[in-house]
Design a protein around this nucleic acid. Sequence first.
DNA 1: CATGAATGAGAATTCATTCAT
DNA 2: AATGAATGAATTCTCATTCAT
Lengths: 201, 201, 201, 201
Amino acid sequence: MRQDLVESAARHFAQHGLERANINTIAVAAGFAKGTVYNYFSSKEALFGEVLAEACRRAVQRYSRLEHGDSVRDRLTALVRADVSVLRDEEAFMKVLLREAMSFRRETYPIIVANLAPFLGLVEDILARGVRSKEIRADLPLSQRALLFVGLLALLFVQHWGSDGEWPTLNALPELVVSAFLEGAAPRGAPRRRRAGRVKR
Amino acid sequence: MRQDLVESAARHFAQHGLERANINTIAVAAGFAKGTVYNYFSSKEALFGEVLAEACRRAVQRYSRLEHGDSVRDRLTALVRADVSVLRDEEAFMKVLLREAMSFRRETYPIIVANLAPFLGLVEDILARGVRSKEIRADLPLSQRALLFVGLLALLFVQHWGSDGEWPTLNALPELVVSAFLEGAAPRGAPRRRRAGRVKR
Amino acid sequence: MRQDLVESAARHFAQHGLERANINTIAVAAGFAKGTVYNYFSSKEALFGEVLAEACRRAVQRYSRLEHGDSVRDRLTALVRADVSVLRDEEAFMKVLLREAMSFRRETYPIIVANLAPFLGLVEDILARGVRSKEIRADLPLSQRALLFVGLLALLFVQHWGSDGEWPTLNALPELVVSAFLEGAAPRGAPRRRRAGRVKR
Amino acid sequence: MRQDLVESAARHFAQHGLERANINTIAVAAGFAKGTVYNYFSSKEALFGEVLAEACRRAVQRYSRLEHGDSVRDRLTALVRADVSVLRDEEAFMKVLLREAMSFRRETYPIIVANLAPFLGLVEDILARGVRSKEIRADLPLSQRALLFVGLLALLFVQHWGSDGEWPTLNALPELVVSAFLEGAAPRGAPRRRRAGRVKR
DNA sequence: CATGAATGAGAATTCATTCAT
DNA sequence: AATGAATGAATTCTCATTCAT
């Protein structure tokens, strides 16, 4: 029951967002009447929070089953693959989560940060190992590098939806994210120019 | 008058988003009564569209004044610096623009794409030059590379706001974006692992 | 509930017409809050349509119980008496119906025509019988004669209201309508002038 | 100027009615700006009243030019023909007038009655002459007979508009009205049944 | 537990009217 | 006289939330 409502809400929120969402529709789609929602959740916002929390839970849970490869590249790729698989199974939840994460609302941002902390921690661990094995540069705090990685991942998910799956495809996504994150756009071995530094207004 | 309304609307939309925004508040903040808004804009959505269009206009316009450096790195950095300067001056407009761009709503996505096309084109041009000068790898279509760059930029702006300006700071942003985009996280000269390739389905 | 709202709406529409009517007033008069109206009717216009339909229903239904006399005059008189009795019981509904019928608005005219078709059919039947028994002249299509009769009836109802019941009184109405319709103003046996006929164009 | 506004208002009111009418549209159609209307009329209702008064004036004025025939039938027919010709020339004004007359609103009914009194008086005069010449029965006060005539006329105008000019046509209208008014539906010389008088319920 | 009728705060929108220019 | 920008009262409609059954 409760679970059905959360699932239904996720689908609906993914499609319409928090403001436009309609409690009655969510309830009916779950096979209940409007009033029933309020037996389980104190308000629309509370229900949304629940969906968000569940989304985080499902996202994080998948990573515990991760088989570890050797290199940082392998680990990160595995991580994204896991993420993509969550995405396939829980598209509604993930859409809600990403949209909300990207909007940085005061009401929900802390929830998201708190819930995604384990995931970010996982990325940080991998990167830390990478620093030790010289696979990752140490010129940026790991927490920031991790944010960059997760942000890039989120960005490409959003772009995937925004382009109706045209680019990037889910299959190409893991390689793409990891490559963009690790190697960037410059060719290997290209000379690194130091900036001149004259910052003009 | 009209301009005052658009400015006020930008500030308000930046804070509350389209749905939560209140026409009366916008009008009063601009020193008018709510009815006046409808002398200039046919609806709340139309006003939002106007704000969006204006945001795009202001963003793009700043790049035309850009003095070009030599290398791709210099050019991209200059671009981001220009962007940051727009951001400082037009924070409200840019927030509206970025939030909306990141939410990929059917109603406004085409507007944004159309209006940002010149900017994306600019990035593509710079990257194309980079490919010729071997500063940029050619393993991805330029339009996609350009999207990656712009997305990364947007991502860091959003993160800047989301962290209340803590990280990244606007000053650090240009170097950060360009570095992350060009070089990624791996050290120069690191060996590139080929993927195993059996990604199925 | 629904019925109470329709009754209240009828009274209100009868007094103020569709445009001037106020949903809140209707709801409160029925003992509800304005929101409740929208649980039953999708809009003010829909509610008006419902009142109209109900008015037609009540008007037509009364005629089915009619005992038939012999002559056309008796039948028509019985018909009008039935009509008058509906009018007494359902004054509000009938006012709405008649006012709307007389204003011929594109939005509601078809509804009215459709709903009153049975009544007009009834009149046509009586007239057809009258033509066979030589009580009715055949110089006009029956559908048009029927319209004349119904129109005359409506006209006198409206005049009744317009004069605050002064003339015609409801008691006098049946005789008056039937007499005006059947015999007109000229004395029996008056010579009928043929028209000159050169009405051109 | 003032006259242009009244004409424009007539056209607009005829199409949309008092409530739905829009002052701005009326003004612009007359070649003025919104505000100008208020230099001439104190309110929308006042403008409507002016249109109504003008309609009455135009309707009545035409009858003064009437050439008189001999019989009541001829006179009435001439009257209706005059009316039809007003109608052709001043359709907008007449529509406003009739619609309003048929709705019996407290605000405007007295105006209409007062303004149409001369016309009704004219009809009464003709009928009085008819009573003397035995062309008209005397079983009804002349004022009421006159109302019946005018009502019938109005009714058929409305039906003309309501049926999009299909029936009755304006050409057929004079004969039709006069015939229906004078002779009714029964054949000449038909026996007149006395009513039994048992008015039931 | 589930229901769904009732609620009423809240928001967008309209437009007659005013009035400074 | 003419204008049209500004106004704000008024109205419709939405929908989260309550609560008696």
